[in-house]
Amino acid sequence: MSKAHSEIEPELLPGDLAIWLFIFMELLVFGIFFIVYAIMRLKNIEMFNQYQLTLNRELGAANTLLLITSSYFVVRAVHAIRLNNVSNCIHWLYAALAGGTGFLILKSLEYYDKFSAGIRLSTNTFYMFYLSLTLFHFLHVILGMLILFAIVIKACRGAYSDQNYTGVETGASYWHMVDLVWIILFPLVYIIR
């Protein structure tokens, strides 16, 4: 019995589950952050509401759009590689990277504004959460872009085809996660009052 079934185990751990386990871990960390944020907000509602108004919602909304669009581009890239259209796939990935770059630029403008106003992690509890949450996410965007870029390079070398596109899918999943986190983060920190 044991010989026949010894092949099963890799499917569970460290099978394909593991990359999802990793994404799950990331979501767990963000999840804990969000819960802690919500609790601290309840404790200091007035302060959170007051400082929330200092955030730039227009830039935030624009960034949301950018990330959602680039997530769509990534979906198109996966679609393209499934049809064995490598050059199309690369183009869509570039488009997604452009979306990510746009996000980084807008976010940097926002940070520049805040930092030059002397706002730092230790300014107050609200800014602590605002900065650490968005900065942590910011770094994830960079990481996601690096992953996408690595996939572009591999795709250019012809590493992917309609037979072998799991790498593209993995990168896409990660990018979707980055997007998803922002979609929760944006209303939570910028909008909900």
Binding site: L17, W20, L139
Partner: peptide, 28 residues
Amino acid sequence: MRETFTKGMARNIYYGGAVFFLLVLIGL
């Protein structure tokens, strides 16, 4: 997403994760 989790992926998570969080620590 039906694929096996390759050693390469595990390695990338290690290098990526380590560099990422080292940068976070340096920033903080």
